[in-house]
Design a binder for these strands. Structure first.
Lengths: 165, 165
DNA sequence: CAGAGCATGTAAGAAGTTACATGATTGT
DNA sequence: ACAATCATGTAACTTCTTACATGCTCTG
């Protein structure tokens, strides 16, 4: 940001959330990030409140004060420039094709530095942790993506377990 | 870091690289990160040189000055505590099970906010970009992981293309 | 009506990015 | 010998994290 129209991943996701729900407070957006299964979206107040201020300054969201008592309550809605920026961010194929950050993939890249039984134990434990995931209550589309992603990962891990034998 | 033994992902990967190659300079590590297919590992000097200094201060690598002329040249090797820290980092199942950061997954989570033809176009372009990837010259294990990861992703994307029809 | 925890922030610090500086080395 | 680029950093800035402050609102 900072007068550059390119959104960070956090900013883009926040914008997409506001678009989906029509109207959200910074707190609600923060909570969504916090509940997400990735620690990349840590959902800290120190990240989200300033982020929404940046988006508002950039004119991508409009905040209205909807306090119903003395406590301030700022509700954000998407603006027309915000909708355009969101579409550009969503359809950015270069970003979408990036390999991102994948702690398991990184460790597999160095699996030769581990004793084989430790490597297999690691993969088994990751599988178990995948099982233990409770699907967070969220929009149906988000849940479907996470479910199919988990399924893909399980297949991938089983393939590597077989390869390590 | 900062006297805490828990390594960041960048630190762990740097340590694993040093372990794999026996002896590396900060420059060589930086270049490895830069060539990686993920922009998460941007491979900037401003990240890697201070990082290696941190690892050395923490006693996880030992740097020796191997200048052969006036130019300084610092070569890092793994220490015994470094080996222990590396093994702990590699077999950290909690980190490995984290969903990490995945730009495509994030966009799919908000695919309902996109016009369907735009969504399909995005997935097709990501597939094309995957094709265009030249396998970076690196250790065989790293290449194998990236190849199988790409294959998994292609399958996943084709599944979503079918679902969007 | 007292305590828990909800909601809105801010402050200090960590870790990364881009951009620059500077000297060494290499190719022509 | 000159230019390109390799290699080693450093400086300023951005963004995120952790930790705190503060007042509101709900529940027993």
């Amino acid at each position: 940001m900072s007068s550059d129209p390119t959104l960070t991943e956090l900013e883009g996701a926040a914008l997409a959330l506001v678009a989906r729900e029509q109207a959200l407070t910074a707190y609600e957006i923060k909570e969504w990030f916090r509940r997400s299964p990735s620690s990349y979206w840590s959902g800290s107040a120190g990240a989200v409140y300033p982020l929404m201020k940046r988006l508002e300054t950039a004119g991508l969201v409009a905040g209205t004060d909807e306090s119903r008592s003395n406590r301030p309550r700022r509700v954000f809605r998407l603006t027309a420039p915000g909708e355009a920026a969101l579409q550009a961010w969503l359809s950015d194929a270069e970003r979408a094709a990036d390999a991102g950050h994948d702690p398991l993939r990184t460790r597999l890249a160095f699996v030769a530095q581990m004793p084989p039984d430790k490597a297999k134990a690691l993969l088994h434990e990751v599988l178990q942790r995948y099982e233990g995931q409770t699907s967070p209550s969220d929009a149906a589309g988000t849940i479907a993506v996470h479910k199919s992603w988990l399924e893909m990962r399980r297949t991938w891990i089983r393939e590597w377990l077989a390869r390590l034998d």
